[in-house]
Amino acid sequence: MEQFVAVAVAHFLALLIPGVDFFLIARTAMASGWRAATGACLGIATANGLFIVAAFSGLSLISHPTVLAVIQLAGGAFLVSIGIAFIRSKARFDPDQAPQAAQATWVRNVGLGIASGLLNPKNALFYVSLAAALAGAEPVTLIAYGGWMFTIVLGWDVFVAIALGSTRALTRLACIAHRLTTAAGAFLVLFGLGMVATASVQLLS
């Protein structure tokens, strides 16, 4: 029980630290509403789930320096492109958009969330480190931990989406929503450039 509490607290504290996933959800929620943002939430949780399964199964390829650098490079380039698209976007939330368009946006956001989660090496390294700390745990215990973490990631991300993308929140943030979404895009660009720079140094060294 003590081990579960320690794992749960460590995992949740990591979620509380704003990062790429947070800003992606925040921008999506403010630009398209919380329902559309749940697509990104599901994609991010899915990517986390894949890392959890890989780490708890003993697949630590991500820990290889060259592989990690390549993922960082690809992830950085992805974040820069997404961030620039966010900054240049003039999209405004339209609650009356057609169902077909809303569904297409949701599906697209699922893919965006998966790509963002998989191309962020910090997610993978966190779960690899956690798996090392849980070495020797029974398979049933690892399955329980994995299921719990997937659920918490999805639940927290949906909470953030609703908090920032509900009609009430969007009404209150209307006057600064564009600046906030632009700031989110700028963060992604800066974070992506940092990843590209770090990966380039590692590959060239």
Rank of each mutant, 00 (worst) to 15 (best):
V110P: 01
A77R: 05
Q103L: 14
Y127P: 01
T46H: 04
A85H: 14
G111W: 07
A104P: 01
A102H: 09
L73K: 10
A69L: 02
K90Y: 11
N48K: 09
F56G: 00
I114C: 03
L73I: 06
A124K: 03
F126T: 07
A91Y: 01
V107N: 02
A55F: 08
L61I: 13
G49Q: 04
A102W: 06
N48G: 14
A115L: 14
P65W: 06
D94P: 00
L73V: 05
I87N: 05
I52H: 04
T66V: 15
Y127L: 12
L118N: 06
F56L: 15
Q97L: 13
T46D: 02
T46M: 15
G49D: 03
S129K: 07
A91M: 09
A85F: 06
G111P: 05
A55S: 13
I114W: 02
A124Y: 07
L112H: 09
I62W: 07
R88K: 15
L112W: 07
A102I: 01
L73E: 04
A47R: 06
Q100H: 13
A101M: 12
T46F: 14
V80Y: 09
Q97M: 15
A69Q: 05
I62Q: 10
N123R: 03
I114D: 00
A98R: 11
G83M: 01
T105D: 11
K90F: 10
L50N: 04
V53D: 02
R108S: 09
I71E: 01
I84G: 05
A98I: 02
H64E: 15
N120C: 05
S57P: 03
G113K: 04
G58F: 12
I114E: 00
Q103E: 11
P99K: 08
F93T: 03
T105C: 13
A101S: 14
A47H: 07
F56N: 00
S116Q: 07
S63L: 10
K122G: 09
I62A: 13
G58H: 13
L73R: 11
V67W: 06
A124R: 03
S129M: 14
V107F: 12
S129Y: 11
I52C: 03
L112D: 03
L125Q: 03
P99C: 09
R92N: 06
A85K: 15
G49P: 03
Q100W: 10
V53N: 05
I114S: 01
I71K: 06
G49T: 05
S63M: 09
Q97I: 13
N120G: 02
I87A: 12
P99F: 11
G76S: 10
L68R: 15
F78K: 00
S89W: 00
I82D: 01
T46K: 09
A54E: 02
G76D: 05
V80L: 10
F78C: 02
P99N: 12
Q72A: 09
D94V: 01
A85G: 12
S116M: 09
G76M: 04
T66W: 14
F86S: 09
F51R: 00
G113L: 07
A54W: 07
V110Q: 04
K122D: 13
N109F: 11
L112Y: 08
L61K: 04
L119K: 02
A74G: 15
V128G: 02
G75E: 02
L68F: 14
G83K: 01
L118I: 15
Q97T: 12
I62F: 11
V107A: 08
G58Q: 12
V70T: 07
